[in-house]
């Protein structure tokens, strides 16, 4: 199958402390790729390396090669000697949609949450924005629930609805890749399942990279499962995805050095 993400020897350091070390990873053009690992194992940093969001957090050093298929085949996203000019950061981030651990709605109305980025980033007309708002809200199964109150504050939605709104907001920008950083961690089981169903549907069209702390969820959703350990890749499963107990055991039997540190 065609590759959507190709990462070679990626290392990331913040303030001289190395968070990711020599990661090589690839993902197909559709399907859910789940990243698991203990807290601090570098999953989120890895995710943020894919849309260069690490650079907004502090002085960061990134080395290695990251190529993404953003519509025209694999392309480098970090400038290097081989490819000195890369896509502008804003465009990259627009094309690599991201949903965070806790729902991060903008402090504006529900409709404006989707319309604002479309207007500012894509310069779309009112009509185009309206139709895209409806389409993306339908994609995440939110349209029937909230179409009658699009002009009210997005913060008044429930946690699960907010998270689906964030997903709809990312989808409205027509991304090529979706990154999700524990999107169900702050939700109850029912709302979490809702998101999972939406993701399974979306994974038919998009390459989805999902960070999960929940081994059951990871094995339930994964078409490819990658285990992170202390900033490195420990294992990648793409055919025989292990069951939740095995993944749990894998995460527990990390090297003693880790426990000591």
């Amino acid at each position: 199958m065609q590759q959507a993400i190709s990462v070679e020897h990626l290392s990331v350091s913040f303030d001289r402390s190395r968070i990711l070390q020599d990661i090589s990873f690839s993902a197909a053009s559709c399907g859910i790729n789940v990243l698991v690992g203990r807290s601090g194992s570098g999953k989120t940093t890895f995710l943020r390396a894919l849309n260069r969001l690490n650079e907004t957090i502090g002085p960061v050093r990134t080395s290695g090669r990251v190529r993404l298929d953003l519509g025209d085949g694999l392309e480098d996203i970090y400038p290097s000697e081989a490819s000195p000019s890369v896509r502008p950061m804003n465009e990259l981030r627009r094309l690599v949609g991201m949903v965070f651990q806790s729902p991060r709605v903008l402090p504006v109305s529900i409709a404006e949450n989707i319309a604002l980025p479309l207007r500012v980033v894509r310069h779309l007309s009112k009509d185009a924005i309206a139709s895209r708002t409806e389409t993306s809200l339908r994609q995440v199964g939110l349209w029937s629930e909230i179409s009658h109150r699009l002009g009210t504050a997005a913060e008044n939605l429930s946690g699960g609805q907010q998270q689906r709104l964030c997903l709809a907001r990312a989808l409205a920008l027509e991304p090529a890749i979706l990154l999700l950083d524990e999107p169900t961690a702050s939700l109850d089981v029912h709302a979490g399942r809702n998101i999972e169903e939406v993701l399974t549907e979306l994974a038919r069209k998009y390459p989805v990279i999902l960070v999960s702390h929940n081994c059951r969820q990871a094995t339930r959703l994964a078409q490819q499962l990658t285990v992170f350990e202390r900033g490195s890749l420990r294992a990648t499963f793409s055919r025989d995805i292990p069951d939740a107990e095995e993944v749990n055991a894998l995460l527990k039997e990390e090297t003693p050095e880790y426990d000591a540190g």
Binding site: V108, S109, A111, E112, I146, H148, G151, T152
Partner: peptide, 12 residues
């Protein structure tokens, strides 16, 4: 205006 609040909820 900047937050797009209005009483009903139709797209505008």
């Amino acid at each position: 205006r900047s937050r797009g609040y209005h009483a009903t909820g139709h797209l505008c």
